[in-house]
Amino acid sequence: MQAGQSASAETGPFPRMRAGLGELACLAALALFFTVAIVQTIGLRFTPSLFPRIVGGIGLLLVIVVIVRSLLARRRGLVTKPEEPDTFLLAPPRKRIVALAAPVAYAGLFVLFGFYASAAASTVLTPWLLGYRRPVALILTGIAITVGLDLLFSTTLGMPVPNGIVGDFLLRRYVYLD
């Protein structure tokens, strides 16, 4: 909501209470972060603990100020809304799951099966799950991106991409015959 806009104008595709709670949840997480940062300095010597305590303390104080301000604003019926339109809540549940799961799945595949499998799978499957239904274009794009990035990193820049835990095991077992 822009400055100067009244609370009565605050209608949208999601409930006001939920929007306010979202901001409070972010602030609570930040308060926890700063608390942990301060607690972690217990046991450290004076010099390495001084600055983290100062910064953590300032951070925690600012979070408390913003929480209090936010609670006061909620009492007046004013909350900080997410960006408009709120793409997260407007998106179908399937898209939300894909958007949140795709990076984690990619990282998991990257560790287990290495770059080639994870890149190919992500560039083909993710658009498909998001609703893009052109299999030939997807497969060609997936191959082009995987090969292109491999050429860039491995060949041109001399930075070999990882084969993953499973990939390394298979290479040792069947290629290098260790």
Partner: peptide
């Protein structure tokens, strides 16, 4: 008073 806290100033 109508201005929303946390918004652009």
């Amino acid at each position: 008073l109508a201005e929303t806290p946390g918004q652009k100033t």
